[in-house]
Design a protein around this nucleic acid. Structure first.
Lengths: 219, 219
DNA sequence: ACATATTTTTACTTAAAGGTAAATATTTTT
DNA sequence: AAAAATATTTACCTTTAAGTAAAAATATGT
């Protein structure tokens, strides 16, 4: 028994904590949720009471196994609904988020498992993120677009989405190759361009380029 | 801008008021919503402030045109989602209600209109109830199963769903014909059997029979 | 038509979820 | 290591939705 608001907090903590592996600060959650730190403190206490998080006063919260599972199952719903919207209802990738944020809270196991089957068990959502299975397993080592990483995240280039000659030539000129380690230094809020370091050289790439680079996360 | 709770009240009032045509008492709403009369009074005031209902103290509430439209658009969503669940996700008619009650509150015009198109513009939901169009028009004179009527509702028999020899013979034996006026006197909660008066004769029919009789509402 | 029964409203509580401002811890700087 | 800056918590307020109990209005029965 978990409320809509609790689900949103768990999701935020999951995303901020590198899939539930590390502890997250009150302020970081407040910023992500666009609310105030005092509200976050209250909610963390509630989540701790329900055994969704471990909480040490003044030292942030980390997900319990129950919390991680709950968060991942919400993310599963979010990504399956995104898939449905794009593949069946003519939504474009940038229109889905708002609606999927609502749909992810619908409570019905049958619904989500039937939807999964109806979509023929997709493994990735329209943004390239992996879809957790019904037991909460998710391939976090999977490739994701570089554009989905957060600041200070390290990664390794696995493949490209756009495999046109032009794009490969562009990468060549910048000395970027499959297998390279790419660190995200900074994301410009205005145009979502990404400052990266690759092969100890710093450079800035556009959002479009970042979307076409599939990487795997490195701690 | 209408809350989930307000939408549920508007829907209840719509169903209780013969499609918005008559005024509904506080107690009737409380019973339908499974809440207390005092809560209903509070909510009616809020709905009146927002111009969804006309409210005269101690004399119930009736839907304004805005209230009727809002209620009908929620019902449109409910019925389209029911259709989706049954025709695409292998739900049976008795499993859909709970989930559709949640889905009907998702806010996105594009979503519901694309869903409508995806389902190829169905005119009736799996229970035979008409689906309102995007402008809130609904064919209330349309045929509905006798089983969807409420107590003390009058109706006229339009057609049958089950057109087997056995069923038609059964109707014959009871002296029931197309065009007859059928009044619902009482619905037995235990087995949903319906006590009716037809041709000034009273009789009881099973839920199954009531589901197979299409009638139109008569005031 | 009046006494009684029923319905409806009012005033006061409660539980979520969020916000403000002040108090307290922790971290950083010098 | 003390002062300053930052982060977190606490105490208290607000709103929404629902509940309780008493008061007020309406409806009913004789």
């Amino acid at each position: 028994m978990v409320t809509l608001s609790e689900e949103n907090y768990l999701k935020a903590i999951y995303h901020l904590s590198n899939h539930g592996s590390i502890s997250v600060s009150t302020n970081a959650i407040a910023e992500k949720m666009e609310t105030k730190a005092s509200s976050v403190t209250d909610m963390i206490k509630k989540l701790a009471d329900k055994n969704f998080v471990n909480y040490i006063k003044y030292h942030g919260a980390s997900l319990t196994e129950l919390g991680r599972l709950t968060a991942v199952l919400v993310i599963r719903k979010h990504r399956l609904w995104e898939m449905f919207l794009v593949s069946k209802l003519n939504f474009s990738w940038d229109e889905v988020h708002n609606v999927a944020e609502q749909l992810e809270h619908i409570k019905s196991e049958k619904l989500i498992n039937e939807l999964d089957a109806f979509l023929e068990f997709p493994t990735h959502d329209p943004h390239g993120d992996p879809i957790p299975d019904k037991n909460g397993n998710i391939n976090t080592l999977d490739k994701v677009p570089l554009s989905t990483l957060q600041e200070n995240q390290g990664s390794k280039l696995l493949s490209v989405k756009d495999s046109s000659d032009e794009f490969l030539r562009f990468l060549n000129k910048r000395n970027i190759s499959i297998g390279d380690t790419i660190n995200v230094l900074n994301i410009e809020p205005y145009d979502k361009s990404v400052q990266i370091r690759v092969n100890s050289k710093e450079m800035t790439i556009t959002e479009n380029v970042a979307e076409n680079l599939y990487v795997k996360n490195v701690k």
